[in-house]
Design a protein around this nucleic acid. Structure first.
Lengths: 348, 348
DNA sequence: CTGAAAGCGCTTACAG
DNA sequence: CTGAAAGCGCTTACAG
């Protein structure tokens, strides 16, 4: 390995001066600087990250701990998160550590041990639970961290989208089109984002002076078969909805499948909107008719996570280290205006 | 952060002795040892990985560099490899770094820079090409590394399966059952494993004194639609095969689909075998009839990779740092014995 | 503009 | 069985 000492010896300057020249400090003769840099390049010098880390107290390492599972189940979302985050962190010259814990391991403890070993500058947490113990632990440790998503029960830095707006925007769009019975296929409501979306839907109803029917609001893991099953149940009920809001595009796929199975046309007989995070396997424009709804590409989250975490590590203070990502709405061709009678039933 | 100095001060021993006590060296008074350890636990001491790394020249970090893609395509295989490897490396107290390169980045150079920065003990390479430049570069650097798979053009440590045996075993099984026209849906033959499998199939034919028909041996990316398309082509040809060997289970799924589309029964009219790596989305027993073929669970590869790489880093010498993983055969219910006439056509 | 010195936290010969 | 000292490679006050 080439060290500062090697360069120092090679051109007869002190290690101090070589370090400063390479560091780009102002108080170095420009000629010296260029000479040092040229020599460093020629020798293939790279600063020793470990030595630098020991001196500066920063390793440049960001870690993410994920719980391991014994059964290899392909979690496409987790994969994209890992790849996206790694790419973003690698691109800024930092190092991304993925620590897959053994099944049943105590991830709180793991975070603490990793941090105490002094080699981790900060953590990224994903999928926070309510009252997530990992968050409490990291706060107690004083470790820099940022959460993708939010734990409403604790105050912490996060990057998230406005999930209440997700529900509100889609419901509002449908209510404006005249729909009065709107089905909602929501995520599992033990998760905060799903709770917020439901609140958004209810708020939109309230704003329009429309009573929301709780029987139309269902909660489930967001995969296509569940969307299909739930939609069939809604359609077969005595008072079916005229529109459905799906929590993600796979759920919407299930909605389309169920409609097809019942000979119900989208959007003529049933309007459909869905939230799209840009990562799910079914992109909205692969739907026929093209699926409308809210859009918040998860890929923008990596940049925000890396940025804010860097600020937190550098202990920069600002108004907040959290960030709510933008939300856009895409009309698509999957929702249409209808007329309804006083009971909310469609009038041809 | 709690350091040796803190413990030293706390119990009035030298830092030297504290270090030795915690390191479990023999020449420390057992009482002292216990006292030091108790204090370390009480204070929540964790050795500083960076300081230790600087001293020992080992960081405990294993890195994997993967090429980034701009389009987030879910690569379930890569995901399992990353998760499996990370879990295995994390479990042994080492650190797994995933470096996702920017699209178009020079991964050779990246490996070199990471290694020269002194913070990486070794690398895991996956998906080696023929004459892979990354391998040449790492060899030139003298960096410890191990390859999952093989580059036959260079000598290096690797963990792989015997792909020639994969082809040989399945072809031999079918030949013994009386098949004389065996279709092969192989992977892309620019990859070494696919070349080896073809060789194995040919070797089995030679051993049985049967001429292999090159027209029956097809090469393609191993996904179900390709398997379906290739099988339809084989079945619709003037002299269709009586058996098909598929490179993986998705290809076999395509074979089953094509057979169903043509009203051809498995195994009555068509025998099918496939190689199963235990990770593909279609497990053999989810097939009807249950799919037979060779099995080599990829999950055993992580342990081997981590083991051998650790040996290489420790510069232990042994007969070889490479490993060929076990292969088993599972009969399933997808292949049956047939009688054939002299031209290789099935006789009822 | 340049250099000698200290120190980050650890490990490990070396001397007692 | 124990301790003082050196050193891993770097950065950074401090003094010239």
């Amino acid at each position: 390995m080439v060290t500062l000492k090697d360069i120092s010896r090679e051109i007869g300057l002190s290690v101090t001066q070589v370090s400063r020249a390479l560091g780009g400090h102002a108080d170095v003769n420009p000629d010296t600087r260029d000479r040092v840099r040229a020599t460093a390049d020629r020798l293939g010098y790279r600063p020793n990250a470990i030595a630098r880390g020991l001196k500066t107290g920063r390793s440049g390492i960001i870690a993410m701990v994920v719980a391991g599972t014994r059964t290899p189940e392909s979690n496409a979302h987790l994969f994209e998160i890992v790849m996206g985050l790694s790419a973003e962190i690698s691109a800024r010259g930092q190092t991304f550590v993925l620590h897959v814990a053994e099944p049943g391991a105590d991830t709180m403890r793991l975070h603490a041990e990793l941090y105490r070993s002094g080699s981790i500058d900060g953590f990224v947490l994903i999928g926070p639970a309510s009252d997530d113990p990992r968050i409490a632990r990291l706060k107690k440790l004083g470790a820099p961290f940022i959460v993708h998503g939010r734990d409403p029960a604790q105050s912490h830095a996060f990057v998230d989208i406005d999930n209440m707006a997700v529900g509100q925007v889609m419901a509002d769009h449908l209510l404006r089109l005249g729909h009065r019975r709107i089905g909602v296929l929501n995520g599992v409501e033990s998760e905060f984002f799903a709770v917020q979306r439901r609140r958004g839907v209810l708020a939109a109803h309230a704003a329009h002076g429309v009573a929301a029917d709780p029987a139309l609001m269902l909660s489930m893991p967001m995969i296509a078969p569940n969307g299909r099953r739930a939609t069939l149940a809604l359609l077969d009920a005595p008072q079916p909805p005229t529109a459905i809001i799906a929590g993600n595009t796979p759920l919407a796929l299930g909605v389309y499948q169920a409609a097809a199975a019942r000979g119900i046309r989208v959007p003529h007989d049933l309007s459909v909107l869905a939230h799209d995070d840009g990562l799910d396997m079914c992109p909205p424009d692969s739907f026929t008719p093209a699926l409308g709804g809210t859009i918040a590409p998860l890929t923008t989250a990596w940049v925000a996570l890396a940025d804010h975490l860097a600020d937190i590590i550098a202990a920069k203070d600002g108004p907040s280290h959290s960030r709510i990502l933008d939300l856009t709405f895409r009309k698509g061709c999957s929702a249409r205006a209808i007329s309804v009678d006083t009971r909310g039933h469609a009038v041809p």
